[in-house]
């Protein structure tokens, strides 16, 4: 039983919120277009803004299988696409020889058979599934190198993979592809052009508060409000790494665990490590910025 794709931008937004993902209109529009046009969606943005989460939510809301390919330097076809099961092949050869099969062409045909093919994420994604085409998440593509990017071109434009020993495998129905990048290097234009592009930004205060309420429901309302205002103010500062939504949620959870009902200088200092991940940033914020923002918070509240 397949759940049908959303038919409008509004339905896409509703689908995402049913999966507890608070999306703004721009993301819903882009996602709707990607689904409708059958094109991969290329999401770029700072770490911790919820890029990976989109794919997960999409898969669960549509009831599709999520296939994740985590990229790293040196990622090759054996790890990403397919590999032959060499041990089983060896045994097959020995058995064939024991049975007296001499014709090497017959042997080759037997050995390079579907049975001995180990399917890796990209190949899996092209296979039909009872729940409809799967969601393929190619995560942090900026971590891999150019050769793999080039390989992806064929996969992402035609949704087909060529295995020399067998032939070309083509998806009957293309999978839903989400590609994410943290932008630690620029991805080649050729790849981006095959996708719809979207820059995922930090959320505004209103949306971030909504996310905190949804994902950290145990935090007191006042605390959530203060946390969001604080984080938003922090993003205005000159920091090496601004806190993402993931960090905001970690911080909200940490403060809740400490039974905090409101922000104070001491509980900020104690939990700053969940929010900022660079020593220089922590030193800067702990020194003066925290007190300053807290003051602003208080004057604004009065």
């Amino acid at each position: 039983m397949t759940i049908s794709l959303p038919a409008s931008i509004d339905e896409t937004a509703a689908l995402l919120s049913s999966g507890a993902y608070v999306a703004d209109r721009s993301l819903a529009t882009v996602l709707f277009l990607a689904l409708k046009m059958g094109r991969p969606l290329f999401l770029e943005g700072e770490a911790g803004v919820g890029k990976t989460e989109i794919a997960k939510v999409l898969a669960s809301a549509l009831g599709r299988k999520l296939i994740r390919l985590q990229c790293y330097e040196g990622l090759d076809t054996a790890a990403a696409v397919y590999e032959w099961n060499y041990q089983a092949q060896m045994i097959e050869i020995r058995l064939a020889e024991a049975q007296g099969v001499e014709d090497r062409n017959v042997l080759a045909k037997d050995v390079f058979d579907d049975r001995f093919l180990i399917r890796r994420p990209l190949l899996q994604a092209l296979e039909p599934d009872v729940n409809g085409p799967p969601v393929l998440l190619i995560d942090e593509i900026d971590r891999t190198d150019e050769p793999f990017e080039a390989y992806l071109l064929e996969v992402l434009s035609d949704f087909q993979i060529t295995i020399p020993e067998i032939g070309t495998v083509k998806a009957a129905e293309p999978p839903i592809v989400i590609v994410t990048s943290n932008r630690t290097r620029e991805i080649h234009d050729a790849l981006k052009r095959r996708c719809l592009y979207h820059w995922v930004d930090y959320p505004d205060a209103e949306r971030e508060l909504e996310i905190v309420r949804l994902k950290a429901p145990d935090a007191a309302e006042d605390l959530s409000r203060q946390i969001v205002t604080f984080v938003q103010a922090l993003r205005e500062r000159d920091l090496y790494k601004q806190p993402g939504i993931a960090e905001t949620l970690d911080w909200a959870n940490a403060l809740t665990q400490l039974n905090a009902v409101s922000l104070s200088e001491s509980n900020i200092n104690d939990t700053l490590g969940t929010l900022l991940k660079y020593q220089d940033d922590i030193a800067q914020v702990r020194g003066s910025d925290a007190a300053q923002i807290l003051d602003e918070l208080k004057t604004a509240a009065e």
Binding site: I9, V30, L33, M37, K192
Partner: peptide
């Protein structure tokens, strides 16, 4: 063009994002 037709533009914002995602590829 395809995106705009598919999206069924009803607001300026929809048009904006439909064009943005197809025409812009760098931040």
């Amino acid at each position: 063009i395809e995106a705009v037709q598919v999206a069924g533009i009803r607001s300026e914002s929809d048009l904006y994002w439909a064009l943005h995602t197809t025409l812009i590829h760098t931040q």
